[in-house]
Amino acid sequence: MSLLALSGVTKRFDGFTAVDGVSFEVAKGAIGGLIGPNGAGKTTLFNTLAGIEVPDEGAVSLDGIQISGRAPYRVFAAGLARTFQIPRPFPEMSVLENCMMVPSAQAGEAFWANWFLPGRVGAEERATRAKAEEIIDFCGLTRVRRDAASTLSGGQLKLLELARVLMADPKIILLDEPAAGVNPSLMRDLVDKIVALNDRGHTFLIIEHNMDVVMSICDPIMVMAQGRLIYRGDAAGARADKAVLDAYLGDVH
């Protein structure tokens, strides 16, 4: 069954159509891959899915619930979490607290609860912290968990982005170029983690330029060019598709 469903999603900026009538579905438990040349509209589509941009036309639903046009924090609450192409940590906060801030509806986020329900806030914080330590360990950041995020390397920031979205137990995780700018060994590590998480039931939609990554772990693969979806299918089909080759793989041939 489809978890994420887009129908006719269109986003224009002053007459320039960045995303043009894109429709596809990602099934529960899948790792969807979204590829396309630079400027194809992939990140704009991600921003539209995440509520940062409001689509001019079309609709997005997650698990049967309409999420298009909602504010980002509401989309997140509905179960869609995304990372950023260029990591956006909270630089002057520790790695631990970058993660601990994520879970939704924490009692202690309400101003008054800190005065009148200190026991509950404390208990929740201990649980949140235990969970954060576990996820930080999974992401291999334990050594730096006390450090400010501003001191992390580019690869560590990618891992932090992943750790943060995992804190939310989202229904679907959108990763924007997780392997970009990451050294080969860390990249293999990241791919292993994504596969391991997928085995545990996490659904992904990934934008990625690294074809080895996309072709090896993603199914289905969606190809965008000039704002339009030009292909949806498996990896072998993408390699053989004329339109895909012209638009995208043609560059590297």
């Binding site: 995440a50 509520g51 940062i52 504010a71 980002p72 924090y73 997140f76 609450a77 979490a81 995304r82 950023f84 956006r88 940590p89 909270f90 630089p91 002057e92 906060m93 801030m101 994520v102 939704s104 986020e109 943060r164 979205v165 939310a168």
Partner: peptide
Amino acid sequence: KAIREDEVAASSLGKN
């Protein structure tokens, strides 16, 4: 503090 640091990221992580 998260909102101070990066409002878009905080909002994408579910904060109003």
